[in-house]
């Protein structure tokens, strides 16, 4: 496992990193956690001219909830930072549920949230969670910052909307209308395996009423699937057996799985339906208990 020859730069600031990206005109790759990139280098699936290691840039390893309720996750925030975060546990149930299901504990100590979203693996957990949460990515290029909505960010399998000279510096999860509820379930053959099927659910609830519903799927299509339209059957409703079943059916129909060694397309669709139903039922049950 010996990668091809590559150069290495370790900028000390975002501006410097962006300048390097600009200089190498698409032949550079950003190294954050490296949990996908390094294996790809070793397998020679990726052979960039230059690696730009952003790990020495101060001030990117953070996550916080702003006073307006929005959550901000810096480019060097590791998966485990979110997994063990009190702030996340209290305020963001979709992220909290997904955090301990990302890869395995070893990968979670090093891999980054933003890096994972940028990697845009169709089976990746965070891209699905971010779509369900209607998040945004802050991209910084030579001419300054811009925000890209998640639904426009993942443009295909392993493809994102960043320009070659842009660095994703932060992910933003908007404040919920009301209370943020949600969950994340993943079926995998083994910890660290790619998902057979994953379901991310995010609901904004005002009282018992669903004000916004976001659902996204991983592992059941050629790219991360935004099932928010299917989930819209929930908006304005309360969680009942009927509304849950309707949503589960609609979301399963939005999945586009293929038959492979992880299961048939029917099986994967069935898992999506089961998981949507389980997450929503779980939310309904905890709401009941709280009331």
């Amino acid at each position: 496992m010996y990668p091809s020859r590559f150069g290495y730069e370790s900028p000390k600031s975002v501006a410097e990193a962006v300048a390097l990206l600009d200089q190498f005109g698409g032949e550079a790759k950003v190294l954050a956690g490296g949990q996908s990139l390094v294996p790809m280098l070793k397998l020679r699936f990726a052979a960039p001219e230059m690696l730009i290691d952003i790990n020495n840039i101060d001030g990117l390893r953070y996550h916080r909830v702003d006073p307006d309720g929005s959550i901000h996750i810096g480019a060097l925030c590791r998966h485990e930072d979110l997994e063990f975060s009190d702030v996340i546990a209290k305020s963001q149930p979709t992220i909290a549920a997904a955090a301990h299901l990302v890869a395995d504990p070893i990968v979670r100590t090093r891999g980054t949230f933003v890096g994972s979203v940028c990697h845009a693996d169709p089976q990746g957990d965070w891209a699905a969670a971010m779509i369900a949460l209607d998040g945004r990515i802050v991209a910084q290029g030579p001419k300054g910052k811009r925000e890209i909505a998640m639904k426009n960010f993942v443009s295909g399998p392993f493809q994102n909307a960043l320009a070659f000279n842009e660095l994703a510096v932060e992910a933003i999860i908007p404040a919920p209308k009301g209370v943020a509820r949600g969950g994340y379930l993943k079926l995998e053959r083994r910890v660290g395996d790619f998902a057979t099927a994953s379901v991310a659910v995010s609901l904004d609830m005002v009282g018992d009423t669903i004000a916004r519903a976001g659902i996204a799927l991983a592992g059941v299509g050629g790219h991360t699937i935004d099932a928010t339209e299917a989930a819209s059957v929930l908006v304005g409703k309360t969680l009942t057996a009927e509304s849950i079943a309707a949503a589960a059916t609609a979301v399963a129909a939005a999945a586009d799985p293929r038959t492979d060694h992880r299961g048939s397309s029917d099986y994967k669709r069935h898992i999506v339906e089961t998981f949507v139903s389980r997450i929503l039922t779980g939310i309904a049950n905890t709401s009941q208990k709280a009331a």
């Binding site: 053959r189 293929r258 038959t259 492979d260 060694h261 299961g263 048939s264 099986y267």
Partner: peptide, 22 residues
């Protein structure tokens, strides 16, 4: 694997050989 066990339960039929590949 879960999909094979699930399919057996659903169909009541034996599952033989290797899982299909990609």
């Amino acid at each position: 694997m879960p999909n094979r066990v699930y399919e057996a339960i659903q169909t009541g039929k034996d599952i033989s050989g290797m899982p299909p590949v990609r």
